[in-house]
Design a protein around this nucleic acid. Structure first.
Length: 193
DNA sequence: CTATTGATTGAT
DNA sequence: TCAATCAATAGG
């Protein structure tokens, strides 16, 4: 079970968003191991009106400006958290939003956290997977490619370019023309179906 | 200090 | 289609 090499993040945010498909997120939770395969992502660039970083660094989004491979966890809509993987160099506010996972380990725990028995509903949405994986804002800014972190990014499959669908992003009101959402073709765990 | 707005979800 | 629910941000 290896963490992703640092060089993995040494690419553009768009490239990283695509390359993350098929990789794994593992949370060493006190109640048990929780893990899932990334099946859907969205890229947020610094010059993107839909990005939190568009208007510069603030207290809320400062984690986005950290080093690649760190976590950016934010709270929104008064009730939800979302989980991002920071990309690009320190000082540049770019990140990849994880929108959906295919549950692998700790499925019974996820059912409890999410209060549902439907496997396909456990992690098929940015706020859903955060609930299922028990990610909290305490993890904002932690290093995800350090073996000692509670949450790590792990190696997995590489998805063939032919099986990556590229579309417009979801839930935003600006920048809707940018095709920065990526997901694995024919995967049943995609959000907003 | 007050008002508005979300990178959403779940119920109606 | 709409309510839930609140921190960050914009405006005065």
């Amino acid at each position: 079970m290896n963490t992703l090499p640092k060089s993995f993040l040494n690419k553009s945010t768009i490239e990283v968003a695509k390359a993350l498909l098929g990789k794994k997120i593992i949370h060493k939770n006190p109640s048990g191991l929780l893990s899932g395969k990334i099946v859907e992502t969205e890229a947020y660039l610094e010059k993107d009106p839909a990005s939190h970083s568009f208007n510069g660094q603030t207290n809320r989004n400062s984690a986005m400006f950290g080093n690649a491979g760190e976590a950016y966890v934010y709270f929104t809509y008064g009730m939800h958290h979302c989980f991002n993987i920071v990309t690009n160099k320190k000082g540049i506010g770019e990140a990849v939003l994880i929108r959906a996972l295919e549950p692998i380990e700790g499925i019974e725990l996820m059912k409890q956290f999410r209060k549902t028995d439907e496997i396909e509903a456990l992690c098929s949405g940015p706020a859903r997977l955060v609930q299922a994986m028990q990610i909290t804002k305490e993890y904002n800014g932690i290093n995800l490619i350090d073996k000692n972190s509670p949450i790590i990014l792990s190696d997995g499959n590489n998805i063939n370019e032919d099986n990556i669908i590229k579309t417009k992003r979801i839930g935003i009101s600006t920048g809707i023309d940018l095709p920065h959402r990526f997901y694995i073709k024919d995967n049943p765990f995609i959000s907003m179906k």
